[in-house]
């Protein structure tokens, strides 16, 4: 049984009558030691999904539906106290912007030790020692000095490392990373991803990676879920997804990656429109207005997740794309994914 099993999760915001569904029936599993990606553009519901799992959404004006079983217990029906005990110890989260996610007026040391005190009962010198050890573990040099410093005295990469140190302080079984590299520059991004990979490999932590960056997915994720407008539109194993993206959205995402080996002057291939281009009725595919392949059928019924080609490769589309994308070699870390271009396939 999977460590985390999300089943038909829905998150609805707003009062009755003016409700909007940010997450609409999302299901996925995360196993011990597995890295699962939630991919999609801004507003597709990926961050809301993670906050709902952590119990970090406000009580007021939010309705949760479905199940999210963590180790057999449904996170969505847990009491606030139970969730609080889980947070930081069983499951932890790394956020997008390391600067704003750290309290600017509290020394790093205290921000690390407070979680050690909360969940592991460490105090005083013992907590300080462990905190220094944690900073060292995530690759922050001179940890004893850094503990006394404030977030603004650290570089962006170090801040994210400090946040990761806090997240792994109590050896959580599930780590949720919400776009952990978005606010960092490229070289630091690679280092942070490397660190996350190392933690997963060494500790067997399950990692739920939330990102819009397909490079991150290629380098890190075992299983990928592509989200669009609150729904999973495609779910496959990494190699399968990059080789045969079948949903027009996933296909478009991969096709829009600029290629270094493309002929000069060749235009980029963006997905047209924005996520706000929706059909005005509830039934039908939310992506239809932006889709190059849509038919009348797309506008009438909500397509179900099917497995049109390979087992384990689910697609929510009535006209799945059959032709592979010709993309460049995505190289990140030691995981190299080569998508098969049309010519040599």
């Amino acid at each position: 049984m999977a460590l985390l099993s999300v089943d038909e999760l829905t998150v609805t915001f707003g009062a009755r009558g003016r409700e909007s569904k940010a997450v609409d029936g999302v299901s996925f599993d995360v196993d011990q030691g597995q890295v699962v990606g939630l991919v999609g553009e801004s507003g597709c519901g990926k961050s809301v999904t993670s906050l709902a799992l952590m119990g970090l959404l406000p009580d007021k004006g939010v309705k949760l539906g479905g199940r999210a079983d963590f180790d057999g217990n449904n996170l969505l029906t847990m009491s606030r106290r139970e969730l609080r005990d889980m947070r930081g110890s069983q499951m932890a989260m790394i956020f997008q912007d390391p600067l704003s996610s750290l309290n600017p007026v509290v020394p790093i040391g205290i921000q690390v030790t407070e979680i050690l005190q909360r969940h592991r009962g460490l105090k005083g010198e013992a907590a300080r020692k462990e905190a220094a050890h944690l900073l060292d573990r995530v690759g922050i040099p001179d940890p004893a000095r850094r503990l006394k410093e404030y977030p603004h005295q650290l570089s962006g990469g170090m801040r994210q490392r400090a946040l990761i140190a806090m997240a792994v302080a109590c050896a959580p079984r599930l780590l949720i990373a919400d776009e952990p590299t978005t606010a960092l520059d490229v070289t630091i991004q690679a280092q942070i991803l490397e660190l996350l990979k190392e933690l997963v490999d060494e500790e067997g932590t399950a990692l739920l990676m939330i990102t819009h960056d397909l490079g991150v997915v290629a380098g890190l994720c075992d299983q990928v879920n592509v989200l669009y407008a609150g729904k999973v539109v495609e779910s496959a194993d990494r190699h399968e997804l990059f080789a045969h993206p079948m949903h027009p959205y996933a296909h478009g995402l991969l096709e829009s990656i600029p290629r270094l080996d493309a002929p000069r002057g060749e235009p980029l291939k963006p997905i047209r429109g924005s996520i706000n281009d929706r059909i005005a009725w509830a039934e039908g595919c939310a992506f239809a207005p932006r889709c190059d392949y849509y038919t009348m059928e797309c506008l009438t019924g909500t397509p179900a997740l099917t497995e049109p080609a390979a087992a384990g490769h689910q697609v929510r589309c009535v006209n799945p794309v059959r032709e592979p994308v010709e993309i460049a070699t995505l190289d990140a870390g030691d995981a190299t994914v080569t998508a098969h271009g049309g010519k040599n396939a």
């Binding site: 609080r84 947070r87 110890s89 989260m93 956020f95 704003s100 996610s101 407070e114 909360r118 946040l163």
Partner: peptide
């Protein structure tokens, strides 16, 4: 602020989140 969310994500008690952060 984001760091309040971080504090809550650590599982700190709400009273601590309010006063210390």
């Amino acid at each position: 602020e984001d760091y309040i969310r971080t504090a809550r994500a650590k599982g700190l008690r709400e009273s601590k989140v309010v006063t210390k952060h």
